[in-house]
Each structure stands twice: as structure tokens, then as C-alpha cells.
Design a protein around this nucleic acid. Structure first.
Lengths: 241, 241
DNA sequence: CGAATCGTTGACGTAAGTCAACTTCAGTGG
DNA sequence: CCACTGAAGTTGACTTACGTCAACGATTCG
């Protein structure tokens, strides 16, 4: 199908833009990236890409769709730890024999490309692929940073702040991966998923979003989210100098 | 002072027990551990061991005292991400040039020993020190796991559950490092610090602790915390099989 | 003996959860 | 075509968990 082909091409562009935003890539990096990216796979919404406790030996690049990283409690409560969007590297850990500390699930139909081969090759000759070697590290750093942000949101912020902060982070990541247009992006999350991410009930997420619409901070339509007040949203995700 | 000597000796024992609980150590591991552990340092309560954004190139083993890892928001709110106790490795990251994503602060007077040299040496010859090489990875895995636990506490748990869960984790870590006696350990945290960790106000922490005392789950006296109902507390930190 | 610092208590306010009903809408099938 | 379905969003009434404020003990310390 030409749909899959388009999503694959767009996804590869997002991967490249994502990596370029993290570090300077050299020709050798770009060359191996174009050549050693693994086979493309497609998964339906709901599919579990990586189960809890699985060996993290098969990282993939997300080319299209959304993936969540979540933990479920015995009584059914669920906490989403993180979201992955097109261009993101999913399920990579530099420590060999490390296992998944959460479950990775497709929130939408997903197209991804295996990264095992690519990462192994750059790992064998880090000095030959300095850009990618640095990128893998930067990506792990970012994932840790996002876990910390998540603790700050749920631990220290009010509902309204949590939503602005999360949306700010998602927006920033979309922009730097060249996704979406202007200050908007496609967001396939239900209000229930948003609640599971920021630690709020579905009903309360709804009310907070409505207030944000009244305040002209965001606008939503057709599964897209537009940011009407970028200044405010960006200041929310600023880190202490 | 003989006090410093005792705390150093006890701390080294805690380090050893901690590492042995993570992985099987060989003679070569134990030998280099005894020899290459760096100089002992002492810091007063309140001292910032590692500032936010500092290069993580000087990891230390905590021999005595408590250290927190925390983030402050511009308006003064503070979130404690993690606690470190005797036997723990503080400020280590396997990714070179990685920077501190939070501030590491001494909550009490602290005695610690430099681990830079030790880690560098095992890193150069991982096959000669298989136990320690595995231990460094296990430690990083655990720190990530604790960030995740923190998200689950603040995102999905009620006040009472949060406290039981945190105390359960601290208790487990003390027991495996051979600290404390029986089901109790020294806990120098104020109720304010506990609140900053689990995302509750000081007053509410106080009420929750009182309820836990009424329920005969814990007892506190003289800066020590006894766990009266270990079964309950341990079941709280169990992971989904 | 103040003077901090920490813990404790009560009264009260509020953010957020719960429950339940009702929309809206996309999809499905008769 | 329209009735039926199920998932997602929306709304209101009510409850509750937790925060805030302020006062008051208990300890420790110089």
C-alpha cells in the first residue's frame, strides 16, 4: 500500500530530524542510518510491543503512531509513564541484559523499524559513528528526564499545570521532529489515557481541558491539538537555569 | 576520630552487602573493591554533594548518612525524587558526559568514599571484574525502577498507600545492606521531607503516620522506625508477577 | 533562658474523585 | 436509508481526600 510507504518515508524523516536535534551527525552516521535501519513492521492499536520484564534486546524506531510505556497495579489501576511518537527510539537500553520495567503498548496503529542491527554496529565502532553514539546516550538521558518530569507533574503540580506541562513537552517533541504544522499536532489520546498519564480522573481531565479552551490556551478538533498560547505553554516546561 | 573510623568500617560493610545482594562477586571483584575505593570524605547536613547539571564524573559510595535527589520549581516547591542510604552508589551514570538531572543533597552528616577510580578500573577490564561490572548495571536499573515507583506512588496511590509503599522500599533496602536491626531502621527524615518525597503536605503526612501507628503498622521512636506488620508492608512493594 | 526546629491538633477551604445521566459520533448491519 | 451499537466526550450533583492556616506542645541547642 502506498499509505504504508508514505508513513515509512515520513517516519524516517522524523527519525533523522529527531537525531539531528540531539547531536551533530556526520556523513558516516547518516550513511549507516540509511543502510542499517532494520525491517519495517506494522502493529495494530492495542498490540503490546514489549511486555513487562522482557529483555530489552530489540529496540525499534517509531515511524508512525503512538506507543505508551505503562505499569498496571494488581487492582487494575494503570499509570502511563511515558509516550513515544514518530521519530522516537523505543525499548533501547545501553545496559546489556536489562529488562523492561514497564509494558510498551501501541496506542494507535504503529509502523516501526528495527534498530538492533544499527545500534549494534555503531556500538562496535563508536569512533566511526560519533554522532549516533552520542545520540543513543542523549536519548537515554531524555527518557530519564521525562520520568523525572512525570514525578514533578504528579507530585507537585495542580491538574491545570500538569496538563499544560505535558502538552508543552509533547508539542516541543513534535516540533523538533518536524511533525505537525505550526503549533499543532495530531494527538490520538483519549481523555482517559491523558488521565492515566497525569494521574487524574477522566472527568477531571475533561474539565481541565475545557478550562484551557476557555482560556484560549489550546484548541482541539478532529484529533488535532492546536496551541493558541505558545508563550505560556513553553514557559511551563522551562527548566531552572 | 574513632567515630569516623567506625562509620567508615560499617559503611564499607554495607557497600559489600549491598553489592552481594545484587550479584555474585568473585575474588577479583572483592579484591579491587577493597583496594581501589577512593578517599573518604565527610560532609555536613545540608551540603550539596552534586549540583543540578553537574557532570556525573565523580560517583561516591555512601558509607553513612542520607542523601536526597531533588528538583526545585521556580516558585519554591520542591520534589524529592529519591533517597540514598549507606551502601548506595550516588551520582554514577554509565553514559559519559551525562549531567545531573537533579540536585544531590546531604540530609544528614554524611561519610562517603570516592568510586571514580574503582569504576574506571572495572570499566577498563569488565571481564576481569564480572561481579562489579554487573553490579554497576544493576544499580542503574534499580535507580530507574525507583523513579518509576515514585511515579506510581504520586500518580496512582492514596496518601496511606504512598507512605506504606515508600517505607516498604526503604525497609527492604536497609535489610539487604545489613543496616538496622530486625524490622527497624534509623530514619532521619522529617515529616516535611517525607511529604516532599511522596507529594503530600506536612500536616497530612503527620496524620497518615498517626493512622499507621494506630493500625499497628509502624512504630517510631528516637529517630528509628519499627515495622510492626512486615507482611503488609512487604506486600505493598510486590511487583506484578 | 530564649530561639529554633519539629511534631501535633483542630477548624475550615478546596481540588479532585465518584456516580450517573446524557450527548455525539463513527461504525455496523439490517 | 435508518435503527442499533459502543466508545468517547460532556455535564451536574454530591462526596472525599487532601491542603491551608494557625495555634500549641515537645526537644534540642547555644
Amino acid at each position: 500500500l502506498s499509505d504504508l510507504a508514505k508513513r515509512t518515508a515520513d517516519g524516517r524523516a522524523a527519525v533523522l530530524r529527531h537525531l539531528e536535534s540531539l547531536t551533530r551527525l556526520f556523513d558516516s552516521d547518516r550513511e549507516v542510518l540509511g543502510r542499517a535501519l532494520g525491517p519495517v513492521g506494522s502493529h495494530p492499536a492495542g498490540h503490546e510491543l514489549i511486555p513487562l520484564d522482557a529483555l530489552l534486546d530489540a529496540p525499534v524506531f517509531l515511524l508512525s503512531g503512538w506507543v505508551s510505556r505503562s505499569v498496571s497495579l494488581p487492582d487494575g489501576r494503570r499509570q502511563i509513564l511515558d509516550f513515544y511518537i514518530a521519530g522516537d527510539l523505543v525499548g533501547h537500553c545501553s545496559r546489556p541484559t536489562s529488562r523492561a520495567k514497564a509494558s510498551y503498548q501501541c496506542l494507535t496503529n504503529v509502523v516501526c523499524a528495527g534498530a538492533t542491527e544499527l545500534i549494534a554496529r555503531t556500538h562496535d565502532q563508536p569512533q566511526r559513528f560519533p554522532g549516533l553514539s552520542a545520540a543513543w546516550r542523549a536519548i537515554e538521558d531524555e527518557i530519564e528526564q521525562r520520568l523525572i518530569d512525570q514525578i514533578i507533574r504528579t507530585g507537585r503540580m495542580l491538574a491545570h499545570e500538569r496538563m499544560v506541562h505535558l502538552i508543552g513537552d509533547l508539542s516541543r517533541r513534535h516540533r523538533r521532529a518536524g511533525l505537525g504544522s505550526g503549533d499543532g499536532f495530531v494527538i490520538p489520546l483519549t481523555q482517559e489515557m491523558l488521565g492515566e498519564a497525569v494521574g487524574l480522573s477522566t472527568v477531571h481531565v475533561n474539565r481541565v481541558l475545557q478550562q484551557m479552551r476557555r482560556e484560549r490556551i489550546i484548541r482541539t478538533a478532529l484529533g488535532r491539538l492546536e496551541i493558541l498560547n505558545p508563550t505560556l505553554v513553553e514557559s511551563a516546561i522551562e527548566r531552572p537555569h
